[in-house]
Amino acid sequence: MSDVKKFMYLNRRAPYGTIYAWESLEVVLIGAAFDQEVSLMFIDDGVYQLVKGSDTSESDMKNFTPTYRTLGDYGVRHMYVDKESLEARGLTTDDLIEVEWEDWETEESVDNIVEAVDAGQIAELLAESDVVFSF
């Protein structure tokens, strides 16, 4: 098997209108077993996937927002959010969940791996990825 690759999961859709967000999350969870360098990117309506306080109790949908909080434990190192997409929807990073990350071996830790980035940074991050999964 080749060296570790940079995986980027590009999440572009709202969490509950279609199944893409949930099935994307399933790939991330399964993919954790493969020990790649994993980042997630949230753009367009995808930023809604990280909005805190979501309540699906009246829509008969499983609320999977809590699962995003655990992604640090699944080897996800970065969760980038598009600034422009947030602003266009009247959101700021204060509206988003926080996700902790810790390396169990080195005990290195990051309080919150959710980070807002601008279009230029997004272009760079995508360009330097080896694999882009687009959902």
Partner: peptide, 15 residues
């Protein structure tokens, strides 16, 4: 399983 997708992404030059 989904592992087949991840494996393909690792093995191949392009997905």
């Amino acid at each position: 399983g989904l592992g087949q997708l991840i494996e393909a992404a690792i093995q191949c030059d392009r997905l």
